[in-house]
Simulated assay, not measured.
Amino acid sequence: MMGKLYDFRIDEEVPLCEVKTEITEMICQKEQCAVQGDVERFLMWNAQNHTQLMQDQNAQENGLKTGSRILLV
């Protein structure tokens, strides 16, 4: 909904569920807004191939590489 792009460096060994929480907190802090809804219910998608990312897996297991674009919905 925000329609903005952000660059993040993430640890490729950390499960994406943890990455999602950290990213959400950083975006809300930067934009000075509160999280709308339950962060647990947010989904992460690979913008290149339009597949949902498995949040119990890490970036490497999901096939993400440097420069990969992720959608958080």
Rank of each mutant, 00 (worst) to 15 (best):
G3Q: 05
K4I: 03
K4F: 13
K4T: 03
D7F: 14
F8T: 02
F8G: 01
F8C: 01
F8A: 00
F8L: 01
R9T: 15
I10K: 06
I10N: 03
E12C: 13
E12F: 08
E12M: 08
E13H: 13
E13P: 00
V14W: 11
P15I: 02
L16G: 09
L16S: 09
L16P: 07
L16R: 01
C17S: 14
C17V: 11
E18D: 15
V19F: 00
T21D: 11
T21W: 10
E22Q: 14
T24I: 10
M26V: 11
M26A: 15
M26R: 15
I27S: 02
Q29V: 01
K30V: 03
Q32C: 10
Q32D: 15
Q32S: 12
C33H: 09
C33A: 15
A34D: 15
V35Y: 01
V35T: 08
V35H: 04
V35P: 02
Q36K: 11
Q36N: 11
G37P: 06
D38M: 05
D38K: 10
V39A: 04
E40R: 12
E40L: 06
R41S: 09
L43R: 14
L43S: 08
M44C: 04
W45R: 07
W45E: 04
N46H: 07
A47P: 07
A47L: 07
N49S: 12
H50K: 15
T51C: 07
T51D: 11
T51V: 11
Q52E: 14
M54C: 12
Q55G: 10
Q55A: 05
D56K: 11
Q57D: 09
N58D: 12
A59V: 05
Q60R: 15
E61D: 10
N62Q: 04
N62H: 02
K65R: 11
G67A: 07
G67T: 07
S68K: 03
R69T: 12
R69Q: 13
I70Y: 00
L71P: 00
L72P: 03
L72F: 05
L72T: 04
V73P: 08
V73N: 00
